Amino acid sequence: MDLVVIGAGVVGAACAYYAAQAGLSVAVVDRGPVAGGTSGSGEGNLLVSDKEPGPELELARMSLSLWGELAHALPHDIEFELKGGLVVAEDDEQLRRLREFATAQARCGVAVEEVDTRGLRAREPHLAPGLAGGFHYPEDAQVQPARAAARLLESAGRAGARLILGEEVTAVTTTPDGRVSGVRTARRRLLTGAVVNAAGTWAGRIAELAGSHLPVQPRRGFVLVTEPLPSLIRHKVYAAGYVADVASGEAELQTSPVVEGTPAGPVLIGASRERVGFDRRISAEAVQRLAGAATGLFPVLAQVRVLRIYCGFRPYLPDHLPAIGPDPYVSGLFHACGHEGAGIGLAPATGLAITQQLTGERAAVDVGPFDPGRLVEPAAAQPRRGN
């Protein structure tokens, strides 16, 4: 077998899809179901609006183009919606900062338009009055992440990929000279010369099994899901503070309102961030902050029922950039993880990049800034021998 992908979330599914399309023999292994981790707990955002000029923005722009292609190529609907994003400012100072941010993005080719108070209400009639203005990003989009992962794996399967669910990887084996030779679960051993670590928030554990080290940590977030409200909210709408929260490394609870409708009708309300390990308990403080902030943006939501609350864990790396590419110390081990809250959006470009590295094809986008070697300390990553 050419490749074993560990992780059946959207990133792992994209890796498997592009590898299978390239003619590689692939197996995908996950201890749970498809999209059973972070992918199944996300809103499905495909964003350029929250990314400052730099390598992640370029990766996001390529990924957005690939998602558009996949929406037509995959066999069933993934609820791809080019809905656009609307970033709003409460006061003139916030608007000034957003303008500087948007101007820099526009120089990089991002489509963005400043919107005054009247324009905000024209785009979103239920927005609160008194906002200073904002910026419209027509390229922002959304998919249904669990469905997208399933469809990618379904297509990979038709190209010959094998899907193994409900089996936890217990070992990544290596040859006496330190090259990857396979993986083990409680039920089987899969022989391969290449392993892709797409295990999301558990990617650090997979790196350890291979004899390497990657400092991935979980960053918890909650989403509130309302009763169906068809066409109430037309865009992904978020406050200016969301951009700063995305870039923050703070461990304490941070919340900033993010509100969007879905094709099925319910409104999704986020976003919160905090590093509390894998604690899944509902935080009353986080929920209250999210509800209060959402009704501040859209007063009409004060009369709406929340049907459920769910939490997920973003795979956080200290510099806020994902790890994409070969491990510097374990030959044959590739990492595709650490995307934090952008994993859905960045998945296709990540999967394509990993496949191009595996096949030696010319890279479609520069992933040098995402080299896992920037995060791995030599003393912490000595390959194991002959196991």
Rank of each mutant, 00 (worst) to 15 (best):
G221Q: 04
L120P: 02
Q105P: 06
A106N: 15
D77C: 06
E52N: 03
V110A: 10
H235D: 14
E274I: 04
R289Y: 05
L152Y: 11
F101R: 04
E58Y: 13
A244Q: 08
D327R: 01
L74T: 09
S248Y: 11
G249T: 11
E274M: 05
D319S: 07
A203V: 07
R281E: 12
Q217I: 02
S49N: 00
L232A: 15
V306W: 01
V28M: 10
G211D: 13
T170E: 10
L163K: 01
L190C: 03
H335S: 11
R107S: 14
D91I: 13
E114T: 04
L153I: 11
Q144M: 14
A198S: 01
Y242L: 15
Q288P: 04
A203N: 13
A336I: 09
G160K: 09
T262M: 12
F370G: 15
I164G: 10
Q288I: 12
G68M: 08
G40E: 05
L127N: 08
H72D: 15
V10F: 07
G12M: 06
V172K: 12
G134S: 09
G85E: 03
V115M: 06
G325Q: 01
E208Y: 13
P129M: 15
Y310C: 06
L375F: 00
E250H: 07
E208F: 11
G37D: 01
L290N: 07
D366W: 07
S272W: 03
A199Q: 13
A148V: 05
F80D: 02
G341T: 15
F334D: 02
L209W: 08
K51L: 01
R31F: 04
R314V: 00
L86R: 03
L66V: 12
A128F: 08
